[in-house]
Amino acid sequence: MSCDHLDLALASGLDLLGPDEAREFALHLPGCPACRAEVETSRLLLDALAFSAAAPAPRPALRRAILRRAQASRWRLPGPVAAVLLVALFCAALWLGATRFPVLPAVTRTASGYIIASLDPTARSPHAKGEVMLLPEAGHILVMADGLAPLRAGRVYEAWLLTRGGAHALGPLHLDGWGYAWLHARVPPGAFRGLLVSVEPARPGPGPSGSTVLATSGDAK
């Protein structure tokens, strides 16, 4: 793909265009796939330059908070328990059967094969946010959420894997006491078609029965 305006794409990322050029390019951009791709490539370049920065570190308090949190959550899922949990999840997941990995509209697929999908809030939990990271070939899935309200005793936030066959419980999210919640599980390659998180009893039924608080969506990323 090529276009006479490609040289403007790079400059637009840093507001280096004059007013006339900027106006012309703004009109041109929506209809030109080549320039759109070039603008994003340029943005990637600028993002990478920023990422490479020998920039000042964020506040020292942030470092302490993050490392303290990591230390605190380190023991929440001891190795043997995790192993048993993963084996159990893997066996349960095998039961689901593998399906071909679909093209999901709300995901980013990285060059190295990771899938990252956003979890969008519902009306039940408007301040929540979350993300699913998946390594499809290895069958690892990580669910992360933030902004979930505390639950009354006996209730959990349950993650459900959506497959062609329906919703299957992955397990409750672990709350780390800092407002974050997460779950690491194994799923069979190709089984992932989406994910939702709902409020459930501590021993959930065969499918989601409570309010959904987060879900993957068709919102493009």
């Binding site: 990637l44 993002d47 990478a48 990422f51 993050i66 949190r69 990591a70 959550s73 980013t108 990285t110 060059a111 190295s112 094969g113 990771y114 990252i116 993300e131 990271m133 998946l134 390594l135 290895a138 690892h140 990580l142 992360m144 974050y180 997460w182 690491h184 990323k221």
Partner: peptide, 30 residues
Amino acid sequence: FFKIWHGRALFDATRGDLPAWIFAIARNTV
């Protein structure tokens, strides 16, 4: 860093190096 920590099992060195993985996570989060 929450994702890096809790998602560490997902990092696969054969697929790329750590900086690229972190860059992808950072960019996606932004």
